[in-house]
Amino acid sequence: MTTVLGKPGTDGLGEAVRALREWQHDGAPAQLHPGDLGWFWRTGPETTAGAVRTWSRNGRIRAVGLLDGPGLLRLAIAPDALRDEETARRMAEDITAPERGVLPKGRADIESPTGALLQDLLSEAGWSAEEPWTPLRRDLTGPVDDPGLRIETVGPERAQLFTAVHRAAFGGSSFTERRWHAMAAGAPYTEARSLLAHNARGDAVAVVTVWSAGPGRPGLLEPLGVHRDHRRHGHGRAIALAAASALRELGSSSALVSTPSANTAAVTTYTSAGFRPRPEVRDLHRDE
């Protein structure tokens, strides 16, 4: 058996998305979700294909990586390959060798599932733990409270307003109407929704995009933001509730989100919307 590293190309991105959907299940460790690829798709299919890495054995994808920035590799590994030695050692070799094209030389971070053999191998090679993140999960088997705001499902004609609120929520964001259309044209968006919240005055105050991995599987919130002029009014909790409700309508079993543990305000907001913190996770870091 051989484990092969490859870049999927635009035609092969759908296969990577399908693999990520299949690997999502309740109780699984936090890892790369098809919604993460969907959000990255705002950069266009060619750029997305250039940022994706896949490891395959006998024609079956065993792991998917997303180079989410110059030195951050985010990974998902098939459940039956988490402790597979051949796959883990090949991945570790590829990740630590710049000529393999997985990570550039120098400072780098790896986000991989907790419990994966790859983490053990990288730690033995000198990679160190970074600051913790808190994954949160909300069960969707029961009803979701009304958010108390008017929630709009955004279509192409409202993309300009949606992206304007997003930019007002995230300083330095480059999310534009053109990028929303690129995201919405991607394969993961076939099971996604962009939501826009309005307060009693009609102001657009918060946004979120939710990503289903298919019926009976966990869905993802990525990203969620509140307009900088409308904070501290409970709108974060409201849009998180709206996101959970939308995922429930899409058939998701649960709703997932992650935030740095140091961002206590975000953790509190999600908790108030019924999300429950899971054990913290840490990226692995290399200085050189």
Rank of each mutant, 00 (worst) to 15 (best):
R90I: 08
E22Q: 13
R193T: 05
A273W: 05
V154K: 02
L82Y: 07
T134A: 02
R100W: 03
R100N: 02
A16F: 03
G59H: 06
G69F: 02
G50V: 09
A76E: 10
S112L: 15
Q24L: 05
A192C: 12
M91F: 00
A164F: 07
V226D: 03
Q31R: 09
H230E: 12
E22I: 04
Q24I: 10
F175A: 00
E288H: 11
S252W: 04
P98D: 06
H230K: 08
K105L: 13
A187Y: 02
A108M: 05
T209K: 02
R90K: 12
S194M: 14
W23K: 01
R83V: 06
P132C: 02
V64N: 04
P223V: 00
E222N: 15
L149I: 01
T141F: 12
L75R: 00
F162T: 00
A187Q: 11
P218V: 05
T209P: 04
A266H: 07
G71Q: 01
P104L: 04
P113Q: 08
V205K: 00
E152T: 14
R90S: 11
H227K: 03
A200L: 09
V102F: 07
T114E: 15
S173M: 07
G251E: 02
R179Q: 15
S272G: 15
A97E: 12
G59V: 07
R21D: 08
G216N: 08
A63T: 04
V165L: 09
L82E: 08
R53C: 07
L67P: 07
P260Q: 14
A28W: 10
E177G: 14
A182W: 07
P156C: 00
P34S: 11
E86V: 12
W41C: 11
N263V: 11
G186E: 03
G236E: 04
A92V: 00
V257Y: 01
R237N: 09
E99W: 08
P113G: 01
D80Y: 10
T153V: 15
G69N: 01
R57L: 08
F40T: 00
L67G: 04
A164P: 09
R217A: 03
V165C: 05
A88L: 02
D120G: 14
S112T: 14
P279E: 09
G274N: 10
R278F: 07
